[in-house]
Design a protein around this nucleic acid. Structure first.
Length: 479
RNA sequence: CGCGGGGUAGAGCAGUGGCAGCUCGGCUGGCUCAUAACCAGCAGGUCGGUGGUUCGACUCCACCCCCCGCAACCA
């Protein structure tokens, strides 16, 4: 019986194009998914889009189309990442999908009756922003965006009794039953819980949401708070509201991959919702950091948003995958700089790996006309170590380790000097040396598969041919 | 005292109670199979500051300074 492995990413809003930060998240998840398939697990890898936001209504109005049309159009930008980034996700959930809407409502109803209650709420509401502000966020009592005086709006919403779950959540997280990686994030969540959990609003008035969103079951004047809606995607995608075949097979999630900005929703709200509904909790939450650009936070107003699609058009999928996985620390913040990208590309991909492959292919071609005699060789590198690092989410270190093997292969060429062996006609030794190099390259290709699937396949195919010919540069240098 | 992360070579980053390390860049050699690639070596650091624990602190503790996120709908 195969072990199942269910991994998810967060579902981003569709009102902006995918940026490099989300690319990091989904690529990390892809590495895990691919790795677990290789070790024989029954993998399901889910991603999708969060579409029930008021912003979509506003943007659609501007373009003169319906919110659904806008979402349909924008969701394509995210689905398209599958080709652009060579991702292996099996399912793509949209929060406007029928099965999602039904599932979110089912989850709402599955929550304990006493956990959901109505409460009057008042706040400062800016008509321009169509959102509430806390008093402390106002500038001289005015909306920071529109500089207008917000209305004091009183509204009755549904609340979730999060406070009830404080101790239970603390216990589950402390014990690691709900594991949060890395430890710093776990401590952060625990310290947040210890400060005391407040009940949170899980609905808003349908009028204020302009009717866009998932209606609260039994009360069409209210729609669900987007987080209640969005979080449920992890089970609605598994047909939680349908035949539950997938749900029974794959839930609970083995890993939720998320960014540090939404950890509270995943580590506190979501488990509490599941507890209330009597459903199993995810096993692990993997929290990555943010990708800054040139030392600054990526933002539209600064205009420094990096588009992964453009990067791939310019440099290729595997180059981007490699850079993000190697250069950005898996759980800390990283800095994206095109100069560093070029440096990594030239040094690691072109000079070390690409050139190794070229020189070895060329020597086999030149010295043996592509036909290596069969010889036994031994290798001495530790591939298990790399698997361990991947399973611990240490992608950068795993790649570093792989590159030690690449480096040692290049050293081996220098030490053995195959061209000299050829010159003195020491063919036995020459065959051994080149065979060892070919075996090493094939192993490198295999172990690289989760990180750079296309490159891995290209190398494997070339070196598994009966006749090994010269090969075109895998990564031409960027000048 | 709101929460969290960080300060190590020119740049980017690892790191561990016991000689400070990696990559890039710079310099010097070697090699010619290869994508002007590869290999060896050299230069470059008071490991943010102060105090403490210790035979010994970059590492542990305390305090301080500086940078960066978050502070309840941003991956």
């Amino acid at each position: 019986m195969k072990k199942k492995y269910f991994i998810t990413t967060a579902i981003p809003y569709v009102n902006a194009r995918p940026h490099i930060g989300f690319a990091l998240e989904i690529i990390q998840a892809d590495v895990l998914a691919r790795y677990h398939r290789i070790i024989g697990d029954d993998v399901r890898f889910l991603t999708g889009t969060d579409e029930n936001s008021l912003k979509n209504v506003q943007a659609a109005e501007k373009e003169g189309i319906s919110p659904q049309e806008l979402c349909d159009k924008n969701a394509e930008n995210f689905k398209y990442l599958k080709e652009v980034l060579n991702l292996s996700f099996d399912d793509f959930i949209r929060t406007t999908d029928k099965k999602h809407i039904a599932g979110a409502q089912k989850l709402w109803q599955a929550c304990k009756k006493e956990d959901i209650y109505k409460k009057k709420y008042s706040g400062y509401y800016c008509v321009g922003c169509e959102s509430f502000y806390m008093k402390k966020d106002l500038v001289d009592g005015l909306c920071p965006e529109h500089k207008t005086k917000p209305e004091v709006v009183k509204e009755e919403n549904y609340f979730f009794k999060l406070s009830l779950y404080q101790n239970k959540l603390k216990r589950l997280i402390e014990s690691g039953e709900l594991d949060i990686v890395p430890k710093e994030r776990k401590h952060e969540v625990l310290s947040f819980i210890e400060q005391g959990l407040q009940d949170f609003s899980i609905s808003r008035s349908a009028k204020r949401a302009k009717g866009w969103g998932i209606p609260v079951p039994g009360d069409e004047k209210q729609i669900m708070y987007v987080w209640f809606d969005a979080l449920s995607n992890y089970i609605t995608a598994l047909d939680y509201a349908g035949d539950q075949k997938l749900f029974k097979k794959y839930w609970p999630a083995d890993v939720h991959a998320i960014g540090k900005g939404i950890i509270r929703f995943h580590a506190v709200y979501w488990p509490a919702m599941l507890l209330s509904a009597g459903l199993p909790l995810p096993k692990r939450i993997f929290v990555h950091g943010y990708v800054n650009v040139g030392g600054e936070k990526m933002s539209k107003s600064i205009g420094n948003v990096v588009d992964p699609v453009e990067m791939v058009e310019d440099y290729g999928t595997d180059a981007l995958r490699y850079y993000l996985l190697r250069e950005i620390p898996p759980t800390g913040d990283g800095d994206f700089k095109i100069e560093h990208f070029v440096q990594r590309y030239n040094a690691d991909l072109a000079n070390d790996l690409g050139n190794l492959v070229s020189r070895v292919a060329n020597m086999v071609d030149r010295f043996f006309h592509g036909n290596l005699p069969e010889v036994e060789v031994e290798t001495d590198y530790d591939l298990e170590r790399i698997n361990l690092l991947i399973s611990q989410f240490r992608f950068n270190e795993a790649l570093e380790h792989i590159y030690k093997i690449v480096k040692s292969a290049n050293q081996c060429v220098e030490e053995e000097k195959p061209w000299e062996l050829f010159a003195v006609k020491n063919i036995d030794k020459l065959a051994k040396v080149l065979t060892k190099l070919v075996v090493t390259i094939k192993d490198i290709a295999l172990i690289l598969e989760p990180f750079m699937p296309e490159t891995s396949q290209e190398i494997s195919e070339h070196f598994n041919k009966k006749k090994i010919s010269k090969i075109d540069p895998l990564f031409p240098r960027i000048l």
